[in-house]
Amino acid sequence: KKGGRINATTALAANLLNIKPVMKFGTGKLDIFQKCRGIKKSRKAMLDAMHNELETTFKKEYEAGKIYLMAASSSTSEVTADWISQIRESFPGMDVMCDDLSLGLSCHIGPDGLGIGCSCMPL
């Protein structure tokens, strides 16, 4: 709302319904992947999307064990630690690295942003 991307009525409705947008980076653009009611459902949507990416886009590297996961956060250290724990539970045995979200991204999404991504090791 503050940035002018949505109007006040939409922002109020999203706030009342506790709607959390789940975003996805594509090739050069950021799109809304899914809208969820509550943080638990949005976290599950992100984990499900990562499972899907590992089974499709990164299947060869995933099967070879050449993938590591990356968690990102603009939230508190407690929330970040909980997010990393949830990722490790969902992807047992996989390496998980974590870093703060960049300031450029954090200023657009605001506080308490979470993310997940993956990177391939050389084959």
Rank of each mutant, 00 (worst) to 15 (best):
T57M: 07
A14W: 08
T27L: 05
G93M: 01
G93D: 06
C36I: 01
R43F: 04
T80E: 13
A72R: 04
L16G: 10
R88D: 05
G3D: 14
L16I: 14
G115P: 05
K40M: 07
T27M: 06
L54S: 07
P92W: 02
E78P: 04
R88S: 13
Q86P: 00
G104K: 05
L123A: 12
D48R: 09
I39Q: 15
L12E: 13
S77L: 09
D99F: 05
S74A: 13
W83K: 07
A8W: 08
V96D: 03
A8P: 03
K44D: 12
G26M: 06
M94G: 01
A13P: 01
I39H: 10
G93K: 10
A14T: 07
W83R: 10
S106P: 09
M97T: 12
M121C: 09
S102L: 01
I67L: 08
G65M: 01
G38Y: 11
W83C: 02
H108N: 14
A8S: 15
P111A: 08
I32R: 10
M23W: 05
P92A: 03
A45P: 11
L17A: 15
R88P: 02
M46H: 07
L123W: 06
K2H: 12
F33C: 09
A14L: 07
R43P: 01
S74K: 03
M94I: 07
C98S: 13
R5L: 10
N52H: 15
K2V: 04
G117S: 13
L12V: 11
E63K: 09
A71N: 09
R37T: 15
C36S: 12
N15K: 15
I32L: 13
L105C: 10
G65Q: 05
G3M: 00
S119G: 14
D112S: 11
S102P: 07
P122I: 06
L123D: 15
L103Y: 02
E89L: 06
S90A: 12
T9Q: 13
P111Q: 11
I116Y: 00
I39N: 14
T10M: 10
R43S: 06
K2T: 10
D48H: 04
E61N: 06
D95F: 01
N52K: 15
H51N: 12
S102F: 02
I87P: 08
D31W: 00
I116G: 03
M50K: 02
S106F: 03
K35F: 04
K2E: 14
A45Q: 04
S102E: 02
H51R: 15
F58K: 02
E53W: 02
S74R: 07
A11G: 11
V22R: 07
G115T: 09
S75C: 11
G38M: 01
P111L: 11
S75T: 07
A11C: 08
G4Y: 08
G113L: 02
T9W: 04
M121L: 14
I109P: 04
D31A: 09
M121W: 11
T9M: 13
M70H: 11
T27E: 15
T9K: 10
G115W: 01
Y62L: 00
I116W: 06
G115H: 05
